[in-house]
Amino acid sequence: MSAMLELEDFRYSYGGVHAVKGISLQINEGEIVTLIGANGAGKSTTMRTICGLTEPQGVQGKIVYKGKEIQKLSGHKITAMGLSHVIEGRHIFSKLTVDENLEMGAYLRKDTKNIKADKEEMYRLFPRLLERKTSLGSNLSGGEQQMLAIARAMMNHPKMILLDEPSLGLAPIIVTEVFKAIKRLNEQEGITIFFVEQNSKIALNSAQRGYVMQTGEIVISGSCTDLSNNEAVRKAYLGE
């Protein structure tokens, strides 16, 4: 199992604030890995930077994807490399329909013939979206929007998907559904998944390995089973 995505002594600062103070982590092919921590720990900043959505000036250290350094690249280039992202707050195209959103997901693809087939595949994986095929993005519920964002990310035929706080603003039942879908993608389609999550419980239940971040640093890491049984983690993040 080779490292697909690696962070080497990654730092990020902006406006004089050191949001991330030097972290290293690695995600191997085929894994589901999570990064958890309290609000303001720096997880989202880390994720956004990996996705190429922050100012490159603040970056120090390396982010390596399949052997290539990507820390200074902008978002669209990273997507083009096969690293799709699902951003915090979902960000679907509100004035486009579900179907058009999926089309947009395939923006970079040149093989137009297969796009239709892939859409069908997405509708199979996310039946709810099939029902709402012609609805405008703004008319979907939070959970449906999240599914759409993930499906859209899939349309790019990515090797890896990054998710920034997928449970944000969703009801618990919906959250469970969303994470079921994420696990399906990993198990059935073989997509490597790395996600940042506020909801530590569902995170540790869904992923295989995890990292815990606190005030810009990684304080502990390991398999999710181990992390779930860890005293400190349980106290701080699982509310026990």
Partner: peptide
Amino acid sequence: TAMRAASMDPMAAESVGVDVS
């Protein structure tokens, strides 16, 4: 379409591979 997408939601557009800049 990329232009319209970029104006609707620049972050989303960037994420699907549109060079928003």
